[in-house]
Simulated assay, not measured.
Amino acid sequence: MTNKKPNTTGLLKTAAEKKEKTLKKVDVAIKAMIKNQSRINFQSVAERSGVSKTYLYKNKAIKSRIINLRNQQEGLSNPKHIKRNMSGNSKDILIESLHRKVKELEKERDQLKEQLKHNLANFYKNI
């Protein structure tokens, strides 16, 4: 004897609550990312909200929202893009300053080596 009409109302109610909870997590994550001016894409939203990227792609409303927000952010500057757009002249200046710093550090190292030799020599004389 099997039950021809099983009672699935509790199961359906739990599934609906889970779906609502997940949608709320995604919404909270997106709002926080907008507030923090973070880059919005499927990967970052998935990490921030704790849901899979597959879920984000399958839900049409969330998918279109992320795509719209991502497209809006295309024109905004990103520190990675700023670094890539450095001119050749500014790179040359940066390289020159790094070379200067290396030479200063090498000179200081040589002085410390020489000082160490003198200190060791004095130490062994006193023994």
Rank of each mutant, 00 (worst) to 15 (best):
M1R: 15
M1Q: 15
T2M: 12
T2C: 08
N3D: 08
N3C: 08
N3S: 10
K4H: 09
K5E: 09
K5H: 14
P6R: 04
N7T: 02
T9S: 10
G10W: 03
L12Q: 14
L12D: 08
L12R: 14
K13L: 15
A15W: 01
A16H: 03
A16M: 04
E17K: 07
K18S: 13
K21D: 10
T22A: 13
T22V: 15
T22K: 11
K24I: 11
K25E: 09
K25F: 03
V26Q: 01
I30W: 00
K31W: 02
K31E: 03
A32R: 11
A32H: 04
I34M: 02
I34N: 00
N36R: 05
Q37Y: 04
S38T: 07
R39H: 06
I40D: 01
I40H: 00
I40W: 01
N41T: 01
N41L: 01
F42S: 03
V45P: 01
A46Q: 00
A46S: 10
E47D: 09
R48A: 15
V51F: 01
K53A: 14
K53Y: 04
K53M: 11
T54V: 12
T54L: 10
Y55P: 01
Y57E: 12
K58P: 01
K58G: 03
K60F: 12
I62V: 07
I62L: 09
K63W: 05
S64D: 14
S64M: 10
R65N: 02
I66V: 05
I67Q: 15
I67G: 03
N68Y: 09
L69V: 02
N71M: 11
Q73T: 00
G75W: 03
L76T: 01
S77E: 12
P79E: 02
P79V: 02
K80P: 04
H81C: 07
I82A: 06
I82D: 13
K83I: 10
K83D: 12
K83Q: 13
S87H: 04
S87L: 02
S87W: 02
G88R: 04
G88F: 06
G88K: 05
G88M: 07
K91Y: 03
D92L: 11
I93S: 08
I93A: 08
L94N: 06
E96T: 12
S97Y: 06
L98A: 12
H99T: 08
R100E: 12
R100P: 02
K101A: 15
V102E: 05
V102Y: 02
K103V: 12
K103D: 14
E104N: 11
E104Y: 09
E104T: 12
E106R: 08
E106P: 07
K107R: 06
E108M: 09
R109A: 07
Q111K: 05
K113T: 14
E114T: 14
Q115S: 09
L116E: 12
L120R: 04
A121P: 03
A121M: 07
F123L: 09
F123Y: 15
Y124I: 09
K125A: 14
N126F: 13
I127R: 11
I127Y: 15
